[in-house]
């Protein structure tokens, strides 16, 4: 579905939802029960209203999701989009503290990791650390990793990649792994071609 059709469909959904919201606001409150009477079963009207509300909630969630995707497409169109991910596969040799990313000598990201976030990466999580736009052509990406290395000493290393940005989205991955023979962590940048 192209961009124009998506905008039209979202507007139509909004137009369809608004009368339903107005009808809900005008619903009369239920009458009070007579004292001593048994609790009546929920009337069919209320059940239908509940289903309507659930349906509307689902529509709102779907609409929100569509809007988010639309926003991403508008801000980071596929032909200029560059996305950077980070993954960790380390145990003994490196505890990540922060990552700084420079593209063409300009700092684009500086991310500080909490213990919880570093733990999530260790457990196999992959984080989208940066999403931006780049022109077609040759670019250089430099990433600096700061943390605690072997023997709990302060550790800072860098990794560089020169890549060609063509037409279409570009995905790069910062990988931190253990280099067991040397008892050192290894930092590399992988191009998802």
């Amino acid at each position: 579905m192209n961009l124009k059709h998506r905008i039209v469909s979202i507007m139509v959904c909004g137009a369809l939802l608004s009368p339903a919201w107005m009808a809900m606001g005008q619903t009369a409150p239920p009458a009070a029960d007579a004292p001593g009477a048994d609790a009546p079963a929920p009337p069919a009207g209320l059940k239908t209203l509940d289903q309507e509300v659930q349906g509307l909630k689902k529509d709102v969630v779907d609409l929100n999701k569509d809007l988010f995707v639309l926003q991403e497409e508008l801000l980071f169109p596929a032909n200029t989009q560059v996305a950077l991910y980070i993954s960790m596969d380390v145990g003994a040799f490196f505890a990540l503290d922060s990552v700084t990313v420079k593209i063409d000598n300009k700092e684009v990201k500086n991310y500080l990791y909490t213990a919880r976030e570093a733990d999530a990466l260790l457990k196999g999580g992959v984080q989208q650390i940066y999403l931006g736009n780049l022109k077609v052509g040759r670019h250089e990406l430099v990433a600096f990793f700061t943390g605690k290395g072997p023997v709990e000493r302060d550790y800072k290393r860098g990794a560089t990649i020169n890549f060609d940005k063509g037409v279409g989205a570009k995905y790069l991955e910062l990988k931190i792994t253990d280099r067991v023979p040397k008892h050192q962590p290894e930092f590399m940048i992988k191009d998802w071609e």
């Binding site: 503290d97 922060s98 991310y111 500080l112 990791y113 909490t114 213990a115």
Partner: peptide, 10 residues
């Protein structure tokens, strides 16, 4: 996210 006095990031 900022670094704390105790060295932890919060």
């Amino acid at each position: 996210a900022l670094r704390g006095l105790d060295g932890r990031n919060l």
